[in-house]
Design a protein around this nucleic acid. Structure first.
Lengths: 241, 241
DNA sequence: GTCTATACGGAGATAGAC
DNA sequence: GTCTATCTCCGTATAGAC
């Protein structure tokens, strides 16, 4: 009598799957919590506000996550793992670095401010630009600021952030550079350091600005200009002479 | 009657200057507040804890600073302005860049991984190493994390941090690079970008690690190695060909 | 100018009905 | 499993004596 209102296309009552209902509630909680934590930081964020944002009751939140600390870790940690899903295009550029390197016209000249148009240069610019586009997204920058600010209280998140970024971005680049070194395309005695330098000149340079200017979208033209110049610098230093 | 205990070298009682007493109290408040804010962040820091750390009463703190927000701004802003006092040696290195550049042996070759020992290279390594030593100091890194984490609530501090760093570190470097360009020592069409790139490869690279690994002292050898490699990269790209 | 004592609100977390 | 109502404590800020 009014307890089964929802009917499907055939008029058959739809009994909500309890598991799915719980999953949806859990999702609405984590969404609300993330928004609140990003807006207020950990300490200033209130469980009351998260309760109101999520639409569920406070007791339910505590049943699911136990405490504010655990909620924070679950939410931020979970988002971190998934945030780089949009960075897939960078993997394609990475494949370009490995496969087509050395087949271009003048990929190794690296004249500094010159306009070397080798395939390697294009691939490196594409790779770094893709990553910059992802890492400079306002939501990811905000998450980064949150993690950095709370790192004394939650060192695990700092470790996780660094590791995820490294595994997804640095490590593949290091491997690619090492391979290019072995094939004689580049002269990179320390691929580990070289990768960090390349990312610093391309991604790090605009990232520094956006770290202290919250909410600003990255400018595509500026991004391309910086990435191009950074890659030129890199190739000038590590190209075969 | 015991109210004038303090005597100077001639046995003359020293009446504490009320203004100085207030100044000392103000100083003990700001010291305590800084320690508390660094340890707990803005929101989690409690005025009670600052009261206990400082040794003065809570009412006195409010008489001096009005509110927690104003105390935070005064303390962090004040420290920012003075934190770079230790970076004076970098100015000396900067003078070296300007005065002795071009007089060295092979300052402009920039062989990438080569060991160019020109005076310019030495001066640039010195300049960047000095700055890295200062910017990577654990207390300054902690302050930086605090500012970044609270930037949504206190955008003024973000602006101030960026401006102070830029005025003291970037701008002089930009000017020096522009001068070297004009004298034909380097080929730097965009000194602004070039300075950011140089600082990214030398200071930014280790800074990124220490951002996510709080409390770790920078290793001198590693610092020198990174700075040297970064400067080589820079000279390879921007040296006259 | 500086202290003690306190007002007042909001925080995180839980008990118990359903 | 989920809600309403509540407990308890600690937060910022201030009033008033000295």
């Amino acid at each position: 009598m009014g307890t089964q209102d929802v009917l499907d296309a055939y008029g058959i009552p739809v009994i909500p799957d309890p598991a799915d209902a719980a999953g949806r509630k859990r999702r609405s909680i984590t969404d609300a919590a993330l928004a609140e934590f990003l807006a207020e930081g950990y300490s200033a964020a209130s469980m009351d506000a998260i309760t109101q944002r999520s639409g569920v009751s406070k007791a339910t939140i505590y049943k699911h996550f136990g405490s504010k600390e655990r909620l924070f870790l679950a939410v931020v940690g979970g988002v971190l793992a998934q945030s780089y899903a949009d960075a897939e295009p960078a993997d394609a550029a990475l494949a370009d670095i490995g496969h087509e390197a050395g087949a271009g016209s003048d990929s190794g000249t690296g004249t500094g401010t010159g306009t070397g148009t080798g395939r390697l240069r294009v691939a490196l610019v594409r790779f770094t630009t893709d990553w910059a586009r992802v890492l400079l997204r306002p939501d990811i920058m905000a998450l980064r600021r949150l993690v950095i600010g709370e790192i004394d209280r939650f060192p695990q998140l700092g470790q996780l952030w660094y590791r995820v970024t490294y595994d997804r971005c640095n490590r593949p680049l290091v491997d690619a550079l090492a391979a290019l070194h072995d094939r004689g395309v580049l002269d990179v005695p320390d691929p580990e350091l070289a990768a960090r330098q390349l990312l610093a000149t391309t991604v790090g340079v605009p990232q520094l600005v956006h770290t202290f200017a919250p909410g600003t979208e990255p400018d595509e033209d500026e991004l391309a200009r910086v990435a191009g110049s950074g890659v030129d610098l890199f190739l000038a230093g590590y190209g075969r002479k």
